[in-house]
């Protein structure tokens, strides 16, 4: 196999503040994990977007097949009773 001259791709996840999830914000190239964190800091948090960074090699992510969309996701659309919308959320509960 020909050795790639390009650096591996990394997916970047940022936690914007304490108590929230890390969210996927984009991807970047870096030669290794340390550099990926540094690059993510410079590319994705320069406007105070976060307090924690995760990076994951993109090739470690297994994705669903877009052609399976119908059988995977379509059936959920008609099942309104799965949504917890039949009770009142108390005041002061955010991030639900």
């Amino acid at each position: 196999m020909e050795k790639s001259k390009e650096w591996p791709l990394w997916e970047v996840f940022i936690r914007s503040k304490q108590g929230l999830n890390h969210k996927h914000v984009g991807s970047l190239r870096a030669s290794d994990a340390t550099m990926a964190i540094d690059n993510a800091r410079d590319v994705y948090t320069r406007r105070s977007e976060g307090i924690s960074i995760w990076v994951v090699p993109s090739n470690n992510i297994t994705a669903s097949d877009p052609s399976d969309e119908d059988s995977l996701f379509e059936p959920a659309n008609s099942k309104v009773y799965r949504h917890p919308t039949f009770y009142d959320v108390p005041d002061g509960i955010s991030h639900m």
Partner: peptide
């Protein structure tokens, strides 16, 4: 030399 480093050096 690369986009990521361009932003880093400019920062």
């Amino acid at each position: 030399p690369i986009l990521e480093e361009d932003i880093a050096l400019t920062n």
